[in-house]
Design a protein around this nucleic acid. Structure first.
Lengths: 245, 245
DNA sequence: CGGAATGTTGAGACTAGTCAACCATAGTGG
DNA sequence: CCACTATGGTTGACTAGTCTCAACATTCCG
C-alpha cells in the first residue's frame, strides 16, 4: 500500500539534491510561510513548481456556496503545482509554519530537457500524485466514515517523520480532515470518539493521536481496497470477517 | 472548464503524430479490443503507456467485497497507463469496440529524453489527468446525486465527437456511470428519470440521451464548482456556457 | 420466441448531514 | 489572577438523501 508520495527509490538521488544541482542559488528560492498563508490561489497564473522543504501544505478547492474539498496534504519532498493549464485550479496554503522551494517553471522545463534524472523525478512526481488520488477517490466514493478516517490515520502514520509512527501530532484541524475525507467535522469528531471508545487509539489532546491498535485501523482502512491482496496467501478472508466485526 | 483531457493546443502537433514520428512501426503497435476486454489488470507489471486510437476505455479499481470505482473514461487521444510503480493499481478495460496504441515504456522514456515535444506531451498527459481528477474528486466528495449526473452529462457533451453534442450515445452502461460517480445504479436511474420528468433531457432509448436544456444541466453541474468563476471577468462566464452548450 | 442481461420503480432502512447546545483551551485585558 | 472572549472540538436530536432489497420492465440476441 503505497501511501507515500515522496517515494524513495534506492540509489536515486533525493529530489532536493537534484534541484540543488540544477539551480545554483537553490537556497535563495526557499520561501517560508506562516500557518494559513496562501502560496498560490485558484485562478493565479501557473508560474512555478513547488517543492516542500519543511512543514505541511494543503491543496484546496472552494465553491461558490462554501463547500470545500481538500485535494491533498503535502509533506517535505513532495512536489506540487503540477498543473497543465495557464491558471491554477487549486489553492495551495500552509497548514503550519512551513517552507517551499519555488522553482520557476520555464527554467524547470529547460533543465528537464538537459537532465534526464530531473525529468524522471518530475514525471514521477506527477504520476505518483495521480496514483495517490486513485486511493483517495476510491475512499471518498466507496467507503464509510470509519473506513475513511482509519485510512487517513494509517496514511499519516506511514508517512510520519516523528520518532514513533504510532504517535501522531496532527498539524491540520478537524475541518481539514473532514474536507479531505468528504465528511463533516461532526462526523469526523464522532468517528474519533468511536475509535477511542473501541480502544483503537487514545486522544490525550485534541491534536495528539496515539494509535493503540494499528492492526485494527489497518484492517478497516484496507477493507475497501486492495482486491489484489485477496490473492495473497493465508488469512485474508478471516481478516476481512474481523474487520467488519 | 477543462473537461477535455485530450486538450488541443493550437499549433502543437497531435500527440498521435508525435508518437508516429518517434515509433517507425507505429501502426503495428495498434491493438484492437472487444467490449469488456482487459488491457491490463491490477497487479500486472507496468510495461507500456497506452494511447487511445478509437472507442472508449475505462480505468477501474475493484475491492475484495465487490465495491468498484471507475477512475476515468478514456477517449481517442487520451494517454493512460501513466503509473509510477512497477505494478498497475488500476485495471484498464475496453468499454466498447476500441483500439489502443501500446507504447513500450522503456522506448518512450528514451525518446522523451531526445524529443522535448514528446516529453512535454507525456508530461502534459500526466498533469492533465491530475487536474481532471480534481473535479472528479470534488464532485464525488461534495455533490448531490443530481449535481453528479449533471456534471457527467455536461462533460460527455463537451467531449462529444458526434455531429450534435446535445445528442449523446452512451457507450457505457449504468453500472459504469454509477461507479464513476460514486453512486448506485438505482440512484443513477432515478436521477435520469428525474431529469426527464423535469424536461432537462429526453431518453428515446436507454443509451441515448438528448439534452433539451443544457443550461439547466450546466447550472446544476457547476453549482458546486468554480468559486473563482464568480469573481473572474466576463469572458469566462460566457466560455462556461459555451463549453457545455 | 425465450432467456439473459440491463434498466426502472417502489418501500423501507440506515448513514451521514444539519442545527443547536455545550465543552475545552488559549489568549487578553482589567 | 480571574473573568471574558474567540476559536476549535464534541455531543445530541432530528432530518434527509442515498442505499438496500425486491419486484417488475425493457432490450438484446441467439
Amino acid at each position: 500500500m503505497a501511501y507515500a508520495f515522496n517515494h524513495n527509490i534506492e540509489g536515486a538521488p533525493q529530489i532536493g539534491e537534484l534541484f540543488a544541482e540544477s539551480f545554483p542559488h537553490f537556497d535563495g528560492l526557499i520561501v517560508p510561510f506562516e500557518a494559513g498563508q496562501e502560496v498560490v490561489g485558484e485562478g493565479d497564473p501557473t508560474e512555478s513548481y513547488y517543492l516542500v522543504m519543511r512543514g505541511m501544505f494543503r491543496a484546496v478547492k472552494f465553491t461558490r456556496d462554501g463547500r470545500r474539498q481538500v485535494f491533498a496534504f503535502y509533506m517535505p519532498r513532495d512536489i506540487c503545482g503540477l498543473e497543465p493549464d495557464a491558471a491554477h485550479k487549486l489553492t495551495i496554503e500552509a497548514v503550519d509554519s512551513a517552507a517551499m522551494a519555488v522553482l520557476p517553471r520555464h527554467a524547470c522545463r529547460m533543465r528537464m530537457n538537459d537532465d534526464p534524472r530531473l525529468n524522471a523525478a518530475l514525471f514521477e512526481g506527477a504520476t505518483r500524485a495521480l496514483t495517490l488520488s486513485i486511493d483517495h477517490m476510491m475512499m471518498i466514493g466507496r467507503s464509510s466514515a470509519e473506513e475513511r478516517l482509519a485510512w487517513f490515520l494509517s496514511m499519516l502514520s506511514s508517512r510520519s517523520a516523528g520518532p514513533d509512527p504510532l504517535v501522531l501530532d496532527l498539524a491540520m484541524q478537524r475541518q481539514d480532515i473532514a474536507d479531505y475525507l468528504g465528511l463533516t467535522i461532526e462526523t469526523v469528531s464522532r468517528t474519533f470518539t468511536l475509535f477511542r471508545d473501541r480502544g483503537f487509539l487514545k486522544l490525550p489532546r485534541k491534536r495528539r493521536v496515539e494509535i493503540v491498535r494499528p492492526d485494527s485501523l489497518a484492517r478497516l482502512a484496507a477493507a475497501d481496497r486492495d482486491a489484489a491482496v485477496a490473492s495473497r496467501p493465508a488469512a485474508d478472508a478471516a481478516e476481512l470477517a474481523v474487520a467488519v466485526a
